[in-house]
Design a protein around this nucleic acid. Structure first.
Lengths: 306, 306
DNA sequence: TCCCAGGACTGAAACGGTTCAGTGACATCG
DNA sequence: CGATGTCACTGAACCGTTTCAGTCCTGGGA
C-alpha cells in the first residue's frame, strides 16, 4: 500500500480513502491511485484491515460437522446463507466444530468471526451460554425451548402440520398417523414440536418412531394398523421408504431428496433456502446495530407431485 | 494483553512467550502470568496474531457450493479434512465460491487463508491459474488432465475399476457394462478416467450414460441388452435406481448413500475420509516448507453386503 | 483586497500481537 | 578476581491497515 502511495505521489491515507470510499478524493488522484494499484497488482491485506477496523466481515456458520454428516437441508442453509452474506459484503464460511462447544469457545471471542449462525440447535443447547458469555452476536437456525429475546429463524411446525393434515383431509383421508423421529433425540426441536403440533391437531393421533433411513421408515409404516390411510413422515429418508407401502406426505423434505424417490412424490418442502437467507440478514442487521430483530417462522410449502 | 502483563508484573513480550512457548520462562513468572490471564478472562486476538506472524493458521476448502449442492462425498472430505487440520493446529473452513473463480481470486492473496484445498477439480480448471499466479499454496482433491508437479490426492480409478471387474468376474459375470455419468460433464476427471479405465480393462465394453438420479439410473439399466449380467455404476444415486433391476456394483459410493438402498448392497466405498485427511496433511507439509509432496492415489474399497 | 469556508490531502496514532537485539544478574571457569 | 556464559526478561520495531485531527490551497463573499 505504501508502494502504491509512493507511485501515485500521495499518502497511504489517501489510498485508503479511495479503497473504501471513505472520503472524497479528486477524480485525478483517484485515477492515478487506481492506475498504480493495477500496475503493482496490489491487493489489500484483509487481516490488517480487520485489525484496524476491529471487524473481519466474516460470519461463521457453525455446524457440528465433526459429529453428524452435513445433510441436504444443512447444505441448503449454507448455500443460501453464503449467498445472502455476499450481497451484503460479508463472507460466510462453514466452521466445523464438535458439538460439545469446546471448539466453539475457541472460535469465538478471538475476533475472527464478527458473528455466528448457529445450526442444529437443541432445545437446551449448551452452546448458547458460550455465545452469550462471550457476547458474540448470533442468530439461530432453529430455536431453543425458550427462545424469548433471541434472534432466530425456524420452521413454523404448527402451520406445517396443519397444512399437511388439511391437504390429506382434502384428499379424503381421515385416519392419519405420524412417523416421527428417533425418540432418543428428545432434545431436538423439530421432532418435539412436530409431534406436539400433530398431537394437538390430529383427530385420532397415532405416532410411531423411526430412524432416518428408508428401511426404518418402511418398517414403521408396516407396523401401522389397517385403518390408517395416510401418514405424515418427519424424516425425509424415512419417508422414502415408507412411500413404497402407503400414502405418505413428507413434512420436511428437500428437492434433492425428493428426486431420489422412484415414484413422483407430493411433499412439503423445507424452506431451507429462505431460512438461511433470513438468518444471515438478521445477523447482519444485528451487527449493524439494529435492535433485536424479529424472529421469523416459516412453514414448509406444499410441493405437488409433477 | 498489556493488562495481563501489568497484573503479572512483566512485559508483554514475556506474556507472549508463555502464550506461544517461544522462549523459556521461569515457572514462577509463568504461574503469575497464567493466573493473571485466568482472572482477566484473557483471550488472544487471532487477527492481531495473524498480522504479526503473517499467517493465520486457517486453511480454506473451496467448494463451488454456489453452483452444486454439497454431496455426501464432499461432506466427508470436509469433515475428515477439518479433523486432520485440527490435530495439526490449523483450522479448516469451507469457503463457498462460484465456479468462475472471481470469488476465489478475492479470497486468495489477501492473506486470509494460508492455503487452499481445492475440490471438484476439472480436467482443465481455470482456478488453478489463479492459485498459481497468486502463489497460494494449495492441494487438489482430484486432479487436472496434466497434474505433473502439482500437489494432489485422488481416487485411483484404474485400480478401482480393476477391483470391480475382478470382483464381478469372481462371481461368474462375464458381460459387464458401465453406467457412466452425464456426458455433458466431459471435463470431469472421475467420469473421464473411469470410462477410460473401463474401456481398457473390460473384455467387451459397453458404456451407457446416466444422470445422477435413481430414475435415470434405472432407465439406463433397462436399456442394456440382455446378455449383460452385471453393471458397474459410477454415480451413486444412479446406482440406487439401477440396483432394482440388475446386479450392480456402485464404483464410488458413500456409506450414507448405501444406507438409502432398500436392499443390502455390495459396493465400492469412496475413500473420501482418507482423501480429505491426506489432502490436509499434504497442504500443511507444504506450508511448513516441505518439498513437493508426493501425490496419493487411493482405490475405492470393496464393501461386501452385510 | 482581505477573510473565511470548505475541499483535498497528509501525518501519525492506533489496532493487538510477535520477534529480536539487548540488558542485567548470577554462576562458572581459568 | 576478572572474563565469559547463560538465563530470564525487557524495549521497541514491526505487521498493513484505518481513522482523525490537522494543514494547505482555492474560490467566493464582503
Amino acid at each position: 500500500m505504501r508502494e502504491v502511495a509512493e507511485r501515485a505521489g500521495v499518502s497511504i491515507a489517501t489510498v485508503s480513502f479511495v479503497l473504501n470510499g471513505t472520503k472524497p478524493v479528486s477524480p485525478a488522484t483517484r485515477a492515478r491511485i487506481e492506475a498504480a494499484m493495477a500496475e503493482l497488482g496490489y491487493r489489500r491485506n484483509v487481516v490488517a484491515r480487520a485489525l484496524a477496523r476491529r471487524r473481519t466481515n466474516i460470519l461463521a456458520m457453525v455446524y457440528p460437522a465433526l459429529d453428524h454428516r452435513i445433510g441436504s437441508a444443512a447444505a441448503e442453509f449454507f448455500t443460501s446463507a453464503a449467498d445472502a452474506a455476499r450481497t451484503l459484503d460479508y463472507h460466510l464460511v462453514l466452521w466445523p466444530v464438535g458439538s460439545d462447544g469446546a471448539d466453539l469457545r475457541e472460535l469465538v471471542g478471538q475476533g475472527l468471526a464478527d458473528g455466528v449462525v448457529l445450526t442444529e440447535v437443541q432445545l437446551h443447547d449448551p452452546r448458547l451460554a458460550i455465545l452469550q458469555e462471550t457476547s458474540t452476536p448470533f442468530t439461530l437456525i432453529g430455536r431453543t425451548a425458550e427462545p424469548g429475546g433471541l434472534s432466530y429463524v425456524d420452521i413454523d411446525f404448527d402451520a406445517t402440520v396443519d397444512l399437511a393434515l388439511q391437504h390429506l383431509h382434502d384428499q379424503g383421508h381421515r385416519d392419519i398417523a405420524l412417523i416421527s423421529g428417533d425418540p432418543r433425540f428428545e432434545d431436538y426441536g423439530p421432532y418435539v414440536r412436530t409431534e406436539a403440533a400433530y398431537l394437538r391437531l390430529a383427530k385420532d393421533p397415532l405416532v410411531v418412531p423411526s430412524a432416518n433411513t428408508p428401511a426404518s421408515g418402511k418398517a414403521a409404516a408396516s407396523r401401522l394398523p389397517d385403518h390408517i390411510t395416510a401418514v405424515l413422515v418427519l424424516n425425509e429418508y424415512a419417508a422414502l421408504g415408507a412411500a413404497s407401502t402407503r400414502t405418505v406426505l413428507p413434512l420436511l423434505m428437500t428437492p434433492e431428496t425428493a428426486a431420489l424417490s422412484t415414484t413422483p412424490l407430493t411433499y412439503l418442502r423445507t424452506p431451507a433456502a429462505e431460512l438461511g437467507r433470513l438468518a444471515t440478514q438478521a445477523l447482519i442487521q444485528q451487527l449493524q446495530g439494529a435492535p433485536t430483530p424479529t424472529p421469523h417462522l416459516l412453514p414448509a410449502t406444499l410441493q405437488e407431485r409433477p
